[in-house]
């Protein structure tokens, strides 16, 4: 019964965080057989004619726009993939980013469409599709790049350069490992970082190219530019985040079917043309697979 569909009772238990373990364990015997079979969620979604997708309301990954329409790189890709899988309707379920995985597991929605990075730890919780994008780094600098900075490594060599970082971003740990923190200026939002460069509070603002491009697109008059994208190498390891769609662990058939359509779109260029309006470019396209990313310990 549990694997067939999530009952209202289990749903409510699942949303109460403390009861999460109970909801999952009460299903465990059924789940195991379902896992062997690969799950039947896809056929159930086809029967229903609608799929529920989980988003975290974060631009440009998955968000509700000013017209109240659900959009972003992941929902737009999902819309096309699901149409091809024979599912016409897509209902958004908005939740905190941190709650996406638990909510997926208890059946609040059927798939995570939030550009979530594939990490080995998350792979133990859920299945991932192959990534739809990779997230190389860039630096935001004044127009003309007067100090000629291209990468974090350039900043290591130049003691006079102050590097702007976003609080809580992966860049903080990169800068820590590179010994840059005594010259770091920590901003509390992407836009205060942008204004910080304009006000000469820092010489360069280091973040993923996707986030910087998104910020700059909202302030097109700012005399700033982005350096070409690059993949930082910290302690001999390449640091490259890759975002993908997430599925319940017992729904391998559903994930595989989604992957087939997504990889067709990747091959014929449709993937890039779909995500380009959200600030993604050729440098964000990747051929890495979920299997590689789940076993990879370098990022």
């Amino acid at each position: 019964m549990c694997a067939a569909h999530v009952s209202r009772r289990n749903f409510l238990m699942g949303t109460a965080a403390g009861a999460l373990g109970m909801a999952v364990s009460s299903c465990s015997t059924v789940d195991l057989t379902a896992q062997e079979a690969g799950g039947d969620l896809l056929s159930r979604i086809r029967d229903r004619g609608e799929v529920n997708i989980g988003i975290a309301n974060e631009a440009p990954y998955g968000f509700v726009d000013r017209a109240g329409r659900i959009t972003g790189e992941a929902p737009e890709l999902a819309r096309i993939v699901f149409q091809r899988l024979g599912v016409e309707r897509m209902n958004p379920r908005i939740t905190d980013f941190g709650a996406l995985i638990p909510a997926l597991q208890v059946g609040v929605f059927d798939v995570i469409a939030a550009g979530m990075f594939v990490t080995p730890a998350r792979c133990e919780q859920i299945l991932f599709s192959d990534p739809e994008y990779q997230a190389p780094e860039s630096l935001m600098v004044p127009k003309g790049n007067p100090k000629g900075i291209r990468t974090l490594d350039d900043i290591v060599a130049r003691k006079d350069i102050r590097v702007g970082l976003l609080t809580g971003s992966a860049n903080i740990s990169y800068a820590t490992d590179l010994g840059l923190m005594d010259r770091a200026v920590i901003f509390d939002s992407v836009f205060s970082g942008l204004d910080g460069i304009l006000a000469n509070r820092a010489d360069a603002f280091s973040l993923t190219a996707i986030s910087l491009r998104d910020a700059l697109s909202k302030r097109p008059d700012a005399p700033l530019e982005l350096t070409p994208t690059y993949v930082p190498v910290i302690g001999g390891k390449r640091k490259l985040g890759c975002g993908a769609f997430g599925f319940r662990r017992d729904q391998r058939i559903f994930r595989d079917a989604f992957n087939v359509e997504l990889n067709l779109m990747r091959a014929n260029g449709e993937l890039l043309s779909t995500v380009r309006p959200f600030g993604f470019t050729e440098s964000e396209m990747t051929t890495l697979t979920a299997t590689e990313l789940c076993t990879d310990t370098s990022s």
């Binding site: 609080t167 809580g168 903080i172 200026v185 920590i186 910080g196 509070r201």
Partner: peptide, 14 residues
């Protein structure tokens, strides 16, 4: 961007 107590705590938390 002054790294006073709260900034440091927020950074550590994140």
């Amino acid at each position: 961007t002054v790294m006073e107590l709260l900034s440091v705590a927020r950074q550590l938390g994140a």
